[in-house]
Design a protein around this nucleic acid. Structure first.
Lengths: 110, 110
DNA sequence: TCAATATTTCCATAATTCATGAAGTATGGA
DNA sequence: TCCATACTTCATGAATTATGGAAATATTGA
């Protein structure tokens, strides 16, 4: 992960539809969702959504597989982790107490 | 935290200088850094940096306090956490194993 | 009060991003 | 083979964003 790659990942999330797509797919989990279902759920035109999905795939935040006529999209949790790790790199270098609160609250109660 | 707020936070990081500024300040920890020092370290003009710092402050990712002639900037770890929490919301809803790898690798060894 | 330092604000220009309509590609069924 | 469905790609114009020069503001010390 370098700065350019990370920038493209953050840029991918810097747009309401794309951010909601990723959140939706994070919640959807392993089964993911077909492009058409995402479009219906978020009330976005198919071609607009397609362009936005392509941006997220290019940024390494989504993966896809064809399934019959549909194309199914999934959140790429590895890509997500890489992006966050790049951002928080060495946050503990000086003072562990600084980054702990960030991570503690993220460890969702599962 | 709503979608618009989160979008502005991600947009703030969707630019190389700003991303490096936040990473630098995350590493710098509690003492933060003066604007001039950041500019020198990242080799960016002061007015350009000033505009970029303003974007990060507006996005809730940085805070600042005046200190004599300098203005000292700090990473806002709460803002950072809110942004990440919004993104990962309900990732565990279906399957804890899905989000665990993301968070495990982020818990830096401190 | 004057000069120097540290930083921000203003403004114009250049570059990037976005949604849309229209056309194209892939798959499955009659 | 023909048609319908599910998506993607392309071209375009409108809106947003980034950068750098010049000027403005705030603080400190002589």
């Amino acid at each position: 992960m370098d700065t350019n790659h990370a920038v493209s990942a953050f840029a991918a999330l810097a747009q309401p539809t794309r951010l909601e797509v990723l959140r939706l797919l994070v919640r959807a989990g392993a089964p993911g969702m077909a492009a058409g279902d995402i479009a219906a759920r978020l009330d976005v035109r198919q071609n607009t959504l397609s362009a936005n999905l392509a941006v997220l795939v290019g940024a390494g935040l989504l993966r896809r597989t064809r399934e019959g006529r549909s194309i199914r999209y999934f959140a790429d949790m590895e890509g997500l982790r890489d992006m966050l790790a790049f951002l928080l790199e060495d946050c503990c270098g000086g003072n562990p107490a600084l980054c702990a609160p960030v991570l503690d609250d993220l460890t969702c109660a599962c």
